[in-house]
Nucleic acid binder design. Structure first.
Lengths: 243, 243
DNA sequence: GTCTATATCATGATAGAC
DNA sequence: GTCTATCATGATATAGAC
């Protein structure tokens, strides 16, 4: 009789998927090195040998944990940028729209369980500072196309600001966003109570306000900016009234 | 004859110090779990057993690596806050001064080899997202007093902004700063060339401009802020013209 | 594809001579 | 305080029955 039941209400995923889910959660919670194969197979209710059967080695498993999610996330990021470029008649996009698309998509992915949700995005955020060279190189490769297109879009959107300055601000924004997603999971130097509870909408509003404030801040008076393309007046980054 | 030479030009530190130096560098470069006692003693040119003789266990060594540096750093942070409070006749300190003191001191410590320099601050920054509970709890304890005093100072400096909002902005700033200090060491999604080279002064100028821009950004329109103490007008965080 | 059992190795830690 | 030698443990990975 069981053979004719068409749909399970909560179908147990196959072994491979269970392993990926368990590994993702454990890597996020404890890091790569501190997570053993035994922990993974135990959480996945699979046999120890099944990891090697399905993925070969631990490093390949790590790769696959990322590959499974990153494709969808970068695809959506690129789609949003496509949309912005199509919607602009002049070809000029407001910088704030670019920032909203890129980092908003990160927050969005963290709120979407189908794409790994908070668990994956915490793992991803923490991996930005992961020392393991193998992981870093892999991530960089997977992410390079989306990052490069957003970077170039920002260069075009802010022709008065030096690329170096823009890259640094992106770097700062990335740090703030990663830390924001890590949230309560991060070492919470500021006190647990307030950081712990935050729905995605509130986090999005708060983070965007902060990021755009930082994006529009007056350019610092460093040598690199004085000599080249940046206008002499401060507030250059916000002079286009971009938001 | 060697016995009478009064000063060595580059005196070799004692074993204990060499172990701490090696451990600090290796932890920063590879993480706690991936760093073995053998790597540490090999780099320190010490015997494997000497770590256990001097520190007992690996966890105690980790603690000591932090304890050695954190005291001086938090002391200077607190001294700068004392100075700000003494210098203000009204008892009101400009928010930007508080942010400059706290995060500027972090950049400053990263540039000061006597306090561990970049190596320690990268380790420190990365440890903000360290999953190891033992390390997190320890750091939180060591850092709590300084963080709490700065937090309270910001609350007083921004009476019109809800504490929750302030804590979140501190959280974002912490993320941006940690990522900035990690610099080239962090997974560099944005392309190596520009992020790699940055002297402390330029980094300080760039980071401060960004952080203060974020601090002064209009408050987001979230429920938490509408109901309570924040004024209805945006730009509340910058209404005091604080920098 | 899934399991049991195991090979092989590196880890943190220690004992005990010097 | 420093060393050599070694322990017990737990790691990844595999062999081979089912």
């Amino acid at each position: 009789m069981a053979a004719s039941i068409p749909v399970e209400y909560a179908p147990v995923p196959d072994t491979r998927t269970r392993i990926l889910d368990a590994a993702e959660a454990l890597f996020a919670a404890r890091g790569f090195e501190a997570t053993t194969m035994r922990m993974i197979t135990s959480a996945a209710q699979a046999n120890l040998a099944s990891v090697n059967y399905h993925f070969g080695a631990k490093e390949s498993l790590i790769e696959e944990v990322f590959r499974r999610r990153l494709g969808a996330i970068t695809a959506r990021m690129l789609a949003r940028l496509d949309e912005l470029e199509r919607a602009s008649d002049s070809g000029v996009i407001r910088p704030s729209k670019i920032v909203e698309a890129f980092f908003g998509e990160a927050i969005c992915a963290a709120a979407d369980e189908a794409r790994g949700g908070k668990v994956f995005m915490r793992l991803f955020g923490r991996t930005l500072t992961e020392p393991n060279e193998f992981v870093r190189n892999f991530l960089k490769r997977e992410y390079a196309i989306a990052v490069e297109r957003y970077k170039q879009a920002l260069f075009r959107a802010l022709p008065g600001v030096s690329p170096e300055e823009i890259v640094w601000r992106l770097h700062f924004m990335l740090g703030a966003t990663a830390h924001a997603i890590a949230g309560a999971d991060a070492l919470n130097l500021l006190g647990d109570e307030m950081i712990a509870a935050a729905d995605a909408d509130t986090l999005y509003a708060r983070l965007m306000s902060f990021l755009l404030g930082g994006l529009r801040a007056p350019l610092p008076l460093t040598g690199a900016n004085n000599v080249s393309s940046a206008p002499a007046t401060p507030k250059a980054a916000s002079s286009k009234r971009d938001g």
